[in-house]
Design a binder for these strands. Sequence first.
DNA 1: TACCATGATTGTCG
DNA 2: CGACAATCATGGTA
Length: 378
Amino acid sequence: MEDQRLMHPSGTMNNNTGGMNMNQGYNMGQTGHEEPNDQRKQEIGDILQQIMTITDQSLDEAQARKHTLNCHRMKPALFSVLCEIKEKTVLSIRNSQEEEPPDPQLMRLDNMLIAEGVAGPEKGGGSSAAANATAAASGGQPDSAIEHSDYRAKLAQIRQIYHTELEKYEQACSEFTTHVVNLLREQSRTRPIAPKEIERMVSIIRKKFAAIEMQLKQSTCEAVMILRSRFLDARRKRRNFSKQATEVLNEYFYSHLSNPYPSEEAKEELARKCNITVSQVSNWFGNKRIRYKKNIGKAQEEANLYAAKTAAAAAQHDYGDGDSDDSSTVGFKSSSFLPPGASSYNMSSTAGLPGQGQGGMYMGMNGDNYTSGGDTSP
DNA sequence: TACCATGATTGTCG
DNA sequence: CGACAATCATGGTA
């Protein structure tokens, strides 16, 4: 990682009250030169050697030398000469820097991170974001809360890592900037340093750290995209409900054929029984209603099967409510799925539907208990 | 492999 | 926002 490499100059300068040249600092913003590895290693070795030499000198000694230099009688003259040279070079520095417009790519990344809820206004923040987001998903909009919670938990994890890293970078940046500024101020006693130069130095450092931040943002975006694609892939995977679940849903549907619109409570109850989500129950009923209407002839067979089954169950209960489990929690919305007057559960329920015989389909079914639910296999 | 069944998604409407 | 209709995409089967 480049950030770690970048921190080294800071450490170097810490020990550098003696006299390392700040010009090394000016190279910071420039792109690294491409040299053969061996040569580069050699150079690094030399530099390290120099540093070791410097740190070997005692601080007192260094301070004493600096003091001697500052008090030297030629110092003012030397300083003014340096100022003159400086004035000439400053011109060349000045035109090299003007603030550029914001990087469009960075803006894209920022926008995406905000849109995905990774950056931007707190949505819970840090590790609690997962819990909050999950709660929001299952509370406000219960649909597919189970799948979402996993996705959101992972997203929150990404968010937390992103913020932690960002914070680290910002802290490092500000520490490093402060250090460099202090160093320059210190040096300005010995050589002329214009405030502009310090500003420039600061902006170079900022740019460098901004580049690192951009890398962070980019990899965060990538992580989010991967997470998303995985999540979407998982969502596309369709699994048929269990035979038992289908049976429960069908029982409910056909025993409320006159009004197959389960209330919220009924949906929850069904979801619990079938071990699926409420939204899956809603989907199922939506699909069922429309497909029933489209193919009443065929559905009729199924209807009879379930009617027979529930009738048998009712008989067992000796005149009790046929589906005590359901009806206890079921509320009905007014609906026109069937014409008014048609009631579910017996032949009259289907009498009003087009394309159906009035006759004895139900009778024909006799009691031959519907054994396998008929439609789906596990 | 084609075909049907089925769960999920999307767009529209009241 | 829920219901509906159309559609997509996958699972299961002949």
